[in-house]
Amino acid sequence: MPQPLHSVLEYIRSSQPWNSIFRHGIPRDRRTRVMAIMSNVFLHLHPVAVRKSGIRLSFTWCMGGLTFFLFLAETISGVLLMFYYRPVPEYAYSDIIGLRAHVTLGLLREIHRWGAHAMIIAIWLHMMRVFLTGSYKPPREFNWGVGVILLVITMLLSFTGYLLPWDQLAIWAITVGSNMGKATPFLGMGGPFSDVLQLPGGVPLVTTRSDAAYLLLAGTSVGENALMRFYVLHCIALPLAAATLIAVHFWRVRKDGGISGPL
């Protein structure tokens, strides 16, 4: 390194602000490397040392990490999209057009959409690797279960997001999906035994305005209420649930003894 640059760096590293942020030297020896992980709130998701097998790319394919990365990318691009998008039928579609036409670096929607597809692929592959390495076996049974719920949430995130552009693709794809809700046994109007649940006096409990599909759509078809409902689920409820469970998931990876390896 050229001498002047070196001395500038030295100056910065010995300054009070720097040392207040990084309470250890450059991670060059064992002690400072351990400190680097332990004293950083983000990095300390990791243990200080891991088994060699655990960090081999051929073992984990980095797929859990990629899923997490895509979750973060979706969160950031999603927040940016929220600045421009209004979840009402009058504006939704034209806001999407506007995103493309008027927003500087108009890649937001592309990144968000392809990132969502990529996240689905990554989470399937992550699950496949966990299965094929038998990493769901004791003591990691519970964390596998947490993962399954994360899988469901991830698919629901993608599904609810699919409606928001409010184009033909969106409403009819969601119609296909919510029609399945109509078929829920006992709780959906079109499902088996929809007339079994009754109030005293033979008043039917499950009607087109009170069945499972109505709960999802807040209406009998995909309309403005459904758009608002999906928007809130997509931008608030499901991301919060996912973030919470991801925290549990990571915590348990460590508590269950780190990434699995041959005994």
């Binding site: 392809w114 698919m155 184009d167």
Partner: peptide, 30 residues
Amino acid sequence: LVLWSVLLRAPLESPANPAGPPNPSKAPWY
């Protein structure tokens, strides 16, 4: 991800028309 987004536009079809389902109507691929 950026490369993918530069190369491929996110699709957008005509505005939602509750009276005119496309044929076939398909759920998202997953």
